[in-house]
């Protein structure tokens, strides 16, 4: 493997993100918003890809981790009354994001534990339930604004920070799966019994995947909250989780590039179809069905096919 290539690409991406952020005044706010959403969705989909695609644990609770990160970071920055442009704003914002990620990853650990016993559909349902529990709890916590939502969040997330985290996450996943250590994730996904037999600690890999995936979902939540400045529990419902899963499946489970492309396409598509408003979701779903029929391995198909994934017998030993 090339020793410094991935580090150079990371550096170049960060510089590019910094440079491109100066173009913001020349872009209409509507397009700018879509560009930010694309970045956030890339973080969400890529982090879920680590859990679903590489480690093979079908999780439907990603919006829950996102909500935890969003609320944690918002509570911190609001309590400190951070204002954009002040000296403390950026370091404290980053700290709040990291806290959001850490709390989300603690929950990732908690959700990861049932994944040691549950497989396939059963795990999917459990994680789906987890996401809903988080949403309902937030809906009933008054200090988080309950169902009214959390208002007055400072607009601290900008183009640079969103894409800096995109670059860091892609760098992390790329390095991880190209190492001997990281091959263990694919082995666990393919065959747990055979993995154990060659000395792979299956528990370790599943927990690491959940904790890391949840961490970045938390970061994405924090970025989202500090961009839209208003969050409420209904933004983090199970439909959001499904959207992220669809990006992973369409892009190709276990394919880094495919998932990025799918995140971009599936963020733009609903917007592009706004002109034919009432048929928007019909076309969107039709496209998904066609993609799944024509290319079950996903657009790029670097990893595994959803067909094989669903065929896997959970009780198989």
């Amino acid at each position: 493997m090339n020793r410094h290539r991935s580090k150079l690409v990371l550096l170049a991406s960060l510089v590019a993100a910094g440079g491109l952020s100066f173009l913001q005044p020349y872009i209409s706010p509507y397009y700018f918003q879509i560009i930010i959403y694309i970045g956030i969705n890339i973080i969400l989909a890529s982090s879920l890809n680590l859990i679903n695609g590489f480690a093979g644990q079908f999780s439907l609770g990603h919006a829950g981790f996102m909500a935890i990160g969003a609320y944690t970071a918002s509570v911190i920055t609001t309590a400190m009354n951070l204002q954009p442009g002040t000296t403390l704003a950026i370091p404290m914002f980053l700290l709040a994001l990291l806290c959001g990620g850490l709390i989300a990853s603690i929950f990732g650990l908690l959700v990861g534990i049932p994944s040691l016993r549950l497989k396939g559909d059963y795990l999917a349902i459990t994680t789906l339930g987890f996401g809903e529990i988080i949403r309902v709890i937030i809906q009933n916590l008054d200090f988080l604004g309950a169902a009214r939502g959390f208002t007055g969040i400072a607009k601290l997330a900008d183009f640079f920070w969103v894409y800096a985290f995109v670059a860091v996450l892609i760098f992390l996943i790329y390095n991880l799966i190209h190492s001997t250590y990281g091959k263990g994730f694919m082995a666990v996904r393919d065959d747990e019994i055979a993995s154990e037999a060659v000395g792979i600690n299956v528990t370790h890999y599943k927990v690491v995947a959940f904790v890391t995936g949840a961490f970045f979902a938390g970061i994405a939540g924090g970025l989202y909250a500090h961009f839209v400045t208003y969050i409420n529990p209904s933004q983090f419902g199970f439909l959001r989780s499904f959207e992220i899963v669809v990006m992973v499946v369409v892009g190709g489970m276990g394919s880094i590039g495919g998932v990025i492309v799918a995140a971009i396409l599936l963020t733009i598509l609903p917007e592009a179809l706004r002109a034919i408003a009432q048929y928007r979701m019909v076309i969107y779903s039709l496209l998904l069905i066609i993609i799944m029929l024509a290319r079950p391995q996903g657009l790029f198909g670097g990893g595994i096919s959803i067909k094989r994934f669903l065929k896997q017998n959970p009780e198989q030993t």
């Binding site: 082995a187 393919d190 055979a194 037999a197 595994i304």
Partner: peptide, 10 residues
Amino acid sequence: FQNIRLFPSL
């Protein structure tokens, strides 16, 4: 294993 258990995606 009796029925070969290789990793299908490796």
